[in-house]
Design a protein around this nucleic acid. Structure first.
Lengths: 217, 217
DNA sequence: CGACCAATTGAATTGATTCAAGGTCCGTGG
DNA sequence: CCACGGACCTTGAATCAATTCAATTGGTCG
């Protein structure tokens, strides 16, 4: 029972504010329609054949890995202008799912040589992110992980103060290798110290950037 | 005070038993001499300009990240036949260091187009590894992490029973996001259950593969 | 308004760490 | 050849950060 629909009719120009690395790949790709996914839908599943790359037009995508007994680790979140979908093997090792309502454009290689080179740049960036993620998970405590996460979000949304949290606590927890209760407690910790303010449950105002950066190491 | 020396004189053929992915890149590269690094030497440092790729001829290399306050996370170990050295930015984000005595061949791109494509394959593999690593660090307990580590080693050394542990406990701990005491206790745990046997401090004999796989999830 | 899901908060538990004390291995020098 | 020193590893006991379990609050939608 798919609620997924296609907005294929007009197919406007690809997302204009995409990241510098992504931009190059997008320009190499043939124009394709945008698909819409409602929240918590599977974009591709573990075990499926690896297909094209995807560009996020709007919304948030999560890249998820599961252990045999169902524990969940979120490897990455992807926002508007970011590209996801590369994998080393022929089969996807991860699930890609919509966090909220998401618009996605498939990037079909135009056949030009530039595509592969640009894809390499994206893959390297993804590797770098994954390695930094490992450092967080292996060697930082709960508050440090959350501070690093928040700073990363702030930077990618290049918002100087207000940071949106489109994903729910459970997703944050599974990204940070914590429980959602712990995420909640860390939030309270930062609120109590006037480092952040919760404008809404999904919107954080950073009151003290320096303190956050101290935490994140 | 470098103890590093060059065995540049004869420059024998590159490592023959390298991994399938690595093989392609190696064949695209120009022949270069092998450098020898004694244990715990820095091959490249964080902050240095990113240079060529490297092929491990023999020995073990560790890829290390440090937090501002000196906590250490090992992102990967590389063994004979494996390639390392790619990074997304112009500056290295990690240290590459020799774990034991290591022979390394620099891979200079031959200029052919194939090099980039093969490098992409390697980068994707590295990303996949990093993501699995994140799953371990985020969602597995100490015994599970060690079991997964051991199985990974066993597979890469394709030894059916005896697995070499060229790195010391501290390195294993920093790879698994644990303390070296905990690594020691996990070893004891497995020994007590007759799942492994310690032939030497750096050599594990796997007595019960299935039990290990159960642990690793 | 009531039902439901997400988020918060509290109290008890636990897995891993920290701190501290031995033990083992190995190279060096008497 | 054996004693000594140092680095690494193992083991134990106490501590602590995060989890688990449980209860409550908050927000949203029919």
């Amino acid at each position: 029972m798919l609620i997924q629909t296609k907005i294929s009719a007009s197919s406007p120009a690809p997302h204009l504010t995409c990241l510098p690395e992504a931009a190059a790949v997008v320009q190499q790709a043939l124009p394709c329609p945008v698909s819409f996914y409602a929240r918590d839908q599977v974009i591709y599943a573990q075990g499926e054949a690896v297909g094209p790359l995807y560009l996020v037009e709007f919304g948030t995508v999560r890249i998820v890995r599961l252990t045999a007994d169902g524990r969940r680790q979120i490897n990455a979140f992807h926002f508007a202008g970011e590209v996801f979908g590369f994998e080393a093997s022929a089969e996807h090792q991860c699930y890609a799912e919509s966090v909220d309502g998401v618009g996605i454009r498939v990037l079909r290689p135009s056949g030009g040589q530039g595509f592969g080179v640009q894809a390499l740049q994206l893959a390297l960036k993804a590797m770098e992110r994954a390695q930094h993620h490992a450092l967080m998970l292996g060697r930082m405590n709960a508050t440090e992980r959350f501070a690093a996460f928040l700073l990363d979000l702030a930077q990618r949304q290049d918002s100087d103060r207000v940071v949106g949290l489109p994903m729910q606590r459970n997703d944050i927890a599974d990204y940070l290798g914590l429980t959602f209760e712990t995420v909640s407690r860390v939030l309270r910790h930062f609120k109590d110290r006037h480092i952040i303010r919760l404008a809404a449950v999904d919107e954080i105002e950073v009151m003290n950037f320096d303190a956050l950066e101290d935490c994140a190491g």
